[in-house]
Amino acid sequence: MLSEEELALLDAIRSTGSLSRAAARLGRAPSTISHAARQLETRFDALLFDRRRYRLQLTPAGHLLADEAARLMIDVSRLTQRVKQIASGWEDRLWIVCDEILEFETLLPVVQAFDALASGVTLRMTHEVLGGTWEALRDGRADLIVGATNEPPAIPGLRWFELGVMEWVFAVAPRHPLAKAAEPLGREQIAAHRAVAVADSSHGSAGRAYGVLGGQAALAVPGMRAKILAQRQGLGCGWVPKHRVASLLARGELIAKQTADPREPNVLYVAWRGDHEGRALQWWIEQFRQARLARRLVDGIDAFA
């Protein structure tokens, strides 16, 4: 490992191309710089400086040493910062998994607020669907999950609280056969038409699909926005978040239909494992406990307004 003085010497010679100018930049005598350069060559048993030309230049070996030593110094600086970060209670990394039912745009202001803390914690934010969200926490692929649905499963050390309640509306496109059907729609009426469902991302089970009746044909799509778009296009029917499609309903691009078996609102959860609770995890948990943020997350953004 090179010292900061040795790194500065290599950089000064590379930049100025002159022993005297390098000495002037470093505020040292040319003889001192020359001696330090020879000591460096002796230490590495390699020719690091090309003295044959009018300009003093680094040899290829000198360039390699300068580049790699600078990189190592940056790595050491980063490691030092990370050690201090961990010692002060901040995690090295925080992995947050959001259920796809939530819209990531609603979290951007919270990410900005977290960045302002200058904690050094690396954020990783991904999404799962339905059972895949709980599975990510259980399998260690998440430190914190947000928007998980259904009752919390048995996970060692599990801690959780309710984020809020999401309301649903059964909707179809104006040209869909069910658009003009008499209400309330019965199960047999609905089952005769293809449902649009968001595909469960769970790997450890067969997965679930909300709103799909037994024997009903289904179009599985990757996310809630895709589901809304597919239903607006008349490709199927199904339940969609009420607040997120408000403008589509107002403009008549989707038609809300009453059903004989209404869908109960879904409780959404925030959950984590209590075996390690660093400062970053605690900060995010406190943000999600705030009623205003929770309401914004659950209601979502009407992207079709």
Rank of each mutant, 00 (worst) to 15 (best):
R38D: 09
L58R: 02
A87H: 02
R21V: 12
S247A: 06
R296A: 13
L235F: 05
T126N: 13
L185R: 03
A29I: 05
V146L: 14
P109R: 03
R78A: 13
A70H: 05
M73N: 10
G215T: 01
T106A: 09
D50C: 05
G120T: 11
L249T: 06
I155T: 04
G238C: 01
D139Q: 09
D45M: 07
R225N: 13
L79S: 00
H127N: 06
L248Q: 02
D200R: 04
P30Y: 10
W239Q: 06
E68Q: 12
R208C: 15
T32N: 13
I301G: 02
A195D: 12
G236K: 04
A305K: 08
D99Q: 00
C237N: 11
G17D: 02
P60A: 01
R175C: 02
A8S: 05
A217I: 00
L235Y: 00
W284D: 12
T80P: 00
G238H: 01
V110S: 02
T149Q: 12
A182S: 09
V198W: 02
Y269A: 04
A37E: 15
V196T: 07
Q258Y: 01
E253G: 07
L249P: 12
I190H: 10
F161N: 02
D11V: 14
A271T: 03
H276T: 15
D302N: 07
H35I: 14
S34V: 10
A192T: 09
E6A: 06
I86V: 15
V121M: 02
A217R: 11
L158T: 01
A24P: 09
S34W: 15
G223A: 13
Q57E: 13
E5F: 02
I155W: 00
D50L: 08
K242N: 05
R289S: 11
E103Y: 10
L158F: 00
C98H: 14
V121E: 02
R21Y: 14
F161T: 02
A218F: 01
R124W: 00
G223P: 11
D302V: 06
Q233D: 15
A303T: 08
P262I: 03
A294H: 13
A246C: 08
Q231K: 06
F288H: 14
L130C: 07
S205F: 13
L123E: 09
P265S: 09
L94Q: 06
E135H: 02
R82L: 10
A118P: 00
D67Q: 13
